[in-house]
């Protein structure tokens, strides 16, 4: 291993971390507000990727543009459709059973939607080719794919947008209030149900955007959402459930550990290292490395 290798490793980890962070925001947001783990967001990542693929092959629309088109559509789906699923569980179960049963339910939804993707687009591996897919930039003497940089910048912009949204707008403040104290928010006249819906809308929009944008750099099959949601869970658990900064740092740690794993134990076992890391973090610090209680 040379110095150049390590630098390259860290730069590529940093760039990949953007993608992981992007796909874990939806889980973070939903967990922050409703305290349930919505794994079915993985299916929306898959759908986002396939929509990007379809629009690219049919109308030659760039995935970046697709992500901007898909986001509002999926926001509407989250606001009107996806929340209804969660609402059923919250009504049906109470107390400690909500978390477990909602996780199982969303797992069911994840599998069902992944099955739909298999039916519509078949199981073979697809890839999107744009004019700049193979273009690379020379940076500190290292060649880095342009697509990776685009994805990273996109992730940074989304993160900044989310931070602005949550801290500087009325809706964001209300969402944070609901996540901190439900009863007090009700007493203050916040439309709690609307905030739940909005959070689900934003989460779905983020997932779809993440799915569209990842097609720039990765080939994918319908199982990609399941893979990404597993990564997103590791990232949120490591970073601290329901915490945006934590999710970003968690994504970074995951990316570094993952690439170090590839270097040290080989690609076959790299996933094992990352998953073991999650279990260790869960056991040592169940609230996550950067987690506090009740923060978005």
């Amino acid at each position: 291993m040379q110095i150049g290798d390590v630098t390259l490793l860290f730069i590529s980890s940093l760039l990949t971390a953007g993608l992981y962070a992007l796909s874990s925001y939806s889980i973070t947001l939903v967990y922050g507000v409703l305290k349930i783990v919505d794994v079915s967001q993985g299916a929306l990542i898959t759908l986002g990727a396939y929509i990007a693929y379809t629009l690219k092959t049919l109308f030659d629309i760039d995935p970046v543009v697709t992500s901007l088109i898909a986001a509002p559509a999926f926001f509407a789906y989250g606001y009107f459709g996806h929340y209804e699923i969660a609402k059923r569980v919250l009504e049906k179960y109470s107390g400690g059973r909500v978390l477990e049963n909602s996780l199982l339910l969303f797992f069911g939804v994840l599998l069902a939607l992944t099955g739909v993707t298999y039916l519509v687009w078949r199981g073979d591996i697809k890839a999107v080719n744009t004019a700049y897919t193979l273009a690379a930039v020379e940076l500190f003497g290292l060649r880095i794919y342009l697509t990776r940089i685009v994805i990273f910048l996109y992730a940074v912009m989304v993160t900044a947008l989310m931070i602005y949204l949550l801290n500087r707008t009325y809706t964001g403040t209300a969402i944070r209030a609901v996540s901190q104290d439900l009863e007090s928010s009700l007493a203050c006249g916040i439309e709690v149900e609307k905030m739940f819906r909005t959070s689900f809308g934003i989460a779905c929009a983020l997932s779809a955007a993440a799915g569209s944008i990842l097609t720039l750099a990765l080939a994918f099959s319908p199982i990609i959402g399941v893979e990404f949601i597993l990564i997103a869970i590791v990232v949120t658990v490591v970073g601290g459930m329901g915490n945006f900064t934590g999710a970003f740092l968690g994504a970074l740690i995951f990316a570094v550990v993952d690439s170090l794993g590839v270097l040290i134990v080989g690609p076959a076992y790299a996933k094992v290292v990352a998953l073991a890391m999650m279990v260790v973090v869960l056991v040592v610090r169940p609230q996550g490395l950067f987690g506090e209680r009740g923060r978005v």
Binding site: N101, F107, G108, V109, L111, A112, T114, G115, L119
Partner: peptide, 17 residues
């Protein structure tokens, strides 16, 4: 065939609801 996932997922969701 490939839609087996769809079936099991929908079944799981239906059972829970």
């Amino acid at each position: 065939g490939e839609a087996t996932l769809l079936f099991y997922g929908a079944l799981l969701a239906a059972v829970l609801l």
